[in-house]
Design a protein around this nucleic acid. Sequence first.
DNA 1: TAAATTCATTGAATTATATTCATTCATGTG
DNA 2: CACATGAATGAATATAATTCAATGAATTTA
Lengths: 206, 206
Amino acid sequence: MEKKEKVRQVRAAETRRKIVAAAKKLITEKGFESVAIEDIAREAGVSTGSFYTYFKKKEDVIEELNRSNFLLLAKTVNEIRDKDLNERLKYYCREFLAEIERVGIEICRQWIRNNITPTEMEIEGKMTTKYDHDYLAMRSILDEGIKRGELSDDTPIDDLALYINAQLYGLMIAWCMTEGKMIGSKQTDSFVEKIVKPVLMPYSRR
Amino acid sequence: MEKKEKVRQVRAAETRRKIVAAAKKLITEKGFESVAIEDIAREAGVSTGSFYTYFKKKEDVIEELNRSNFLLLAKTVNEIRDKDLNERLKYYCREFLAEIERVGIEICRQWIRNNITPTEMEIEGKMTTKYDHDYLAMRSILDEGIKRGELSDDTPIDDLALYINAQLYGLMIAWCMTEGKMIGSKQTDSFVEKIVKPVLMPYSRR
DNA sequence: TAAATTCATTGAATTATATTCATTCATGTG
DNA sequence: CACATGAATGAATATAATTCAATGAATTTA
């Protein structure tokens, strides 16, 4: 099976990229609600219909903008296997908060809006709900903690992962509500010290 | 100045109440986006135009549904003046989480969507942004803590109030994301013990 | 190579709602 | 009673999102 369909495929990918880039630019500037499909299409130099070749709904373009986010987080968890629990948590939280800053406030806002009502989506081949993915990343850090004896065997990792993630979401929402005035990746260490460690303390073995 | 305008006033109030009740019912059932003004009007037995006699925008009806929330929280803070700091915090957090459960998941979702982008609104005569209000309630609890010597004078109450509130929002958003499966007012005590107290520990005097 | 097929692209048409507004009518005022 | 006011109405308007039939370039087939 040789790769045929060369020109079409390349152009389609290019069109998609242009649409995503245009959406990112405009949404970052003006906010999701204020940007019409027509605006995105014009900015990308395509027609409105083309948008719908690549995205079912207007909101779906946000998923595209945050897919890199998810991939990054998943990757992050693997990269830090060798560090101890505390370091792994810090690293993860820092990446999470850094990503928030990276995508910017308007995209972050829309991400929350989309995710408040969880929808099924395909991540790495499996159908999961969005929050599951963050949740699973955090869960795997804690799980690893048990395997290494950093946490006791009876640590309720499901609850704790959900709980700790909730705290991260809290920072994210506070960040959006205060127009980015509060909390960023710089506060990660204090977040982990004050919020995450106390939650884990009862189960900590070191 | 006698109260004239009796019938009109009463009927107007009644119409408003019917609209709010209809909105609450339908939004709770089907979610904000799925409910059209026409649906609300029909349910309330009025015309679509009447909706706009009482609300500028569709979203404004959510404010109405949550005004009681804010008033309750403000009232709560005053009711618990005699308790110690820890009890006051627990009481406040419990009411906050209880309110989330009370209004239900769909209204809560829309409340977050509205509040992520803070808008100015009049609360008790002053223009404030929405998040300010929750924030001020929490701030006044901590402030009282300093006055009573429960917290040291140099406690950064602005930062801490914002921070602790962020954690409450985190629970709220997690609650919405997990379809109400996680976290409720029952977990308040553990929330305060694990999350709030550790944050305040460095400044605690008792 | 020519004919048939596929598929991205287009933009006008459709659809769905939110919002406005001229009109009507019941209530309040002098 | 006669005029003024404000609430209620619902058809008209406005704004976007979404659909879809037509087009033609790229690809496949014979």
